[in-house]
Design a protein around this nucleic acid. Structure first.
Lengths: 117, 117
DNA sequence: CTTGAATCTCACATCCGTGTCAGATTCTAA
DNA sequence: TTAGAATCTGACACGGATGTGAGATTCAAG
């Protein structure tokens, strides 16, 4: 499929897809004329990238953990694996903080609801 | 206390504290010479602001929900309350997404660990 | 073929909380 | 009173993913 279809099916802009490729996070075959072509597989990849971005990883960080994603094997570099664990722990802590905030927002809502009519 | 101490005690930079004030999120008394002075109360306020920023609210959005924070009463505007609920729901959904990502990172870690020596 | 839609590259803009620097002023302790 | 630290305002810079526009080229359907 071409880039427009991939964009549509993933909900990610064409601009972003090109950016991901530029960052080394997404690959594509090129037609003789230079147009990018993707397989179904890239849909999952793009969606995973979006998840990682949403989790607060930068392009560079994602690049570092990619080997773990692509080939979970003994050959996977220690650096990639360690980075993966670091990011997991960071995300876990982040979620914990957000959960606390969520709880306090809930309290706030209850408090306000009580004081209203 | 002065701005330097507030910064130190909250872990927020002096620059950011001034920015919060500029955005209408933080108030201060001024000395005759123009220096800002804060009470203990502002510590909580700053920490709460940090939580909201971390939860993905923009300055403007925080400004909108502030009335609910400051005076939970019948007088609190409907708009503020509704925005508060919107943000709570947004945060809830966001946490749910992150949790999914966390789970998949955990899987990935387990998978990689298994394949390594 | 031809034509219009899609894609290409390159470059610059945007957002927004924060960093940082400059030059002036204020505060505090000796 | 004076030196040095802290604060003041104002302005510009940054990071990083994404938006946007120009001008050229390619693709696909008639």
């Amino acid at each position: 499929m071409r880039i427009g279809e991939l964009a549509e099916r993933t909900g990610v802009s064409v601009r972003s897809l090109r950016y991901y490729e530029e960052q080394g996070l997404l690959s594509s075959e090129r037609s003789s004329g230079g147009h990018r072509h993707y397989t179904e597989h890239e849909i999952d990849r793009v969606e995973y990238l979006q998840r990682l971005y949403a989790a607060g990883l930068s392009s560079q960080t994602i690049l570092r953990v990619l080997p773990c994603l692509e080939s979970p094997s003994q050959a996977t570099s220690d650096a990639a694996f360690e980075q993966l664990v670091v990011e997991r722990d960071r995300l876990q802590a982040h979620i914990a903080g957000l959960s606390t905030t969520l709880a306090s927002l809930d309290e706030l809502i209850a408090l306000n609801r009580a004081k209203r009519s």
